[in-house]
Design a binder for these strands. Structure first.
Lengths: 216, 216
DNA sequence: TAGATTGTTAATCGATTAACAATC
DNA sequence: TAGATTGTTAATCGATTAACAATC
């Protein structure tokens, strides 16, 4: 019944949330789409259009109340739901993720870290002790986490994902250097490709060098 | 003189590169846009349009030669230029980045790691020994790296960026939890926000839950 | 009330897809 | 040559921007 929200809008939501959070931290109470557009370097029109996909959070003549807008975006993004996550793979990427407190401050709760390397078992990472991968099935059935963070080697990513889907996990954040796309359409995967960002940066350097050359 | 390539196309380039690399590794010699579109889950038309922004890499009746296409995309992205990078900040994120060999295999060379914490000086990370941040000015003037990877705390990100711009760095990959956007228009910044991916994933879980509820 | 600013409709712009002639 | 598939133009679709009436 609801109109489907476009991917472009969804992609922009976290950015709105970051800016609004910063503005709130700065002690500001309200903001107009115009002023926000200036800060974020987008059009005011786009901001109003985007937010209105989810409801009217502003007020004519006043603008947007920061606290209300922030909590509204939190609801939209599900940051108020206390979703829980497990981390699979306690290599560098996995440990970095686990230790980074920002993730938990964004409304998520990491409840378990797993690794298949027996040497890592029991090692402390952040507030957690690494568990054996062999315990994962039971852990999931007891704790029912909503998401799994995959930070395993490329080769094992697909196998692990399939196994976890079998145990009922339906949402993945995938840091492995491979692109997961599972058949089941009730499974959601966000692939993170750090080297893509690096390649884009590289492209822009090339582009700039080309522009500098042509001195016509 | 050249038509400006749109951001959408540039964003897709690294993904093409990853797929083509995998296909090459699988020993395949040529591929049609149709077959590639099937694998990548995009339209063949889009693939042809995108590639033709940069030239005609295919051949009628044959398709695309994988080796040639791969090296062509490498040239477009500048992966063949031997760009060098320094890493600033040897915390978890920085070390993960430094150790991850995938970055170097993508045509970049990490030539120095810097941290302002005196305790970290001399500590080995991957093949590198962490240098003091106070040495960075001289290092840059001697080695002229094309890019800097920022993995410093949020609070210092802007200051560090400004300083490095002063030393001649013009391209940044920023992992700090803040969005850099410097005034100078000859400076390029790629911001990486890991928690944005997490929030998008969360949004999709909410969306699915909403869809499941309404059993009309 | 007058001024400000939203929510929303309409207009524009750009990106994606379809179609097909060119050609290997 | 016949079949396949590109490169590219034209058509469609969707996203962004502009405009403005509604209203706080």
């Amino acid at each position: 019944m609801e109109k489907k929200v476009s991917a472009s809008v969804i992609n922009r939501l976290p950015r709105y949330y970051r800016y609004i959070s910063e503005i709130e931290a700065g002690g500001i109470e309200r903001i107009s789409s115009k002023e926000l557009s200036r800060r974020m370097n987008v059009t005011a029109s786009q901001i109003r259009q985007d937010l209105n996909c989810f409801g009217g959070f502003g007020q004519q003549g006043y603008g947007y109340n920061i606290k209300f807008l922030k909590s509204s975006i939190e609801k939209i993004l599900g940051l108020d739901r206390g979703y829980t996550a497990i981390l699979v793979g306690a290599g560098n990427m996995g440990r970095t993720f686990a230790i980074n407190t920002k993730f938990e401050s964004r409304g998520f709760k990491l409840i378990g870290i797993f690794d298949s390397d027996p040497k890592k078992k029991g090692v402390k990472v952040g507030n957690h002790f690494i568990k054996s991968y062999s315990e994962i099935k039971q852990f999931i059935s007891e704790n029912k986490p909503q998401m799994a963070i995959l930070a395993v080697p490329k080769e094992s990513a697909r196998g692990v994902a399939e196994e976890l889907i079998g145990y009922g996990i339906k949402a993945f954040l995938n840091f492995s250097y491979t692109e997961l796309s599972m058949a089941a359409d009730d499974v959601t995967i966000e692939n993170v490709h750090l080297s893509d960002s690096l390649m884009r940066l590289s492209y822009k350097i090339v582009e700039r060098e080309n522009n500098t050359e042509q001195v016509e």
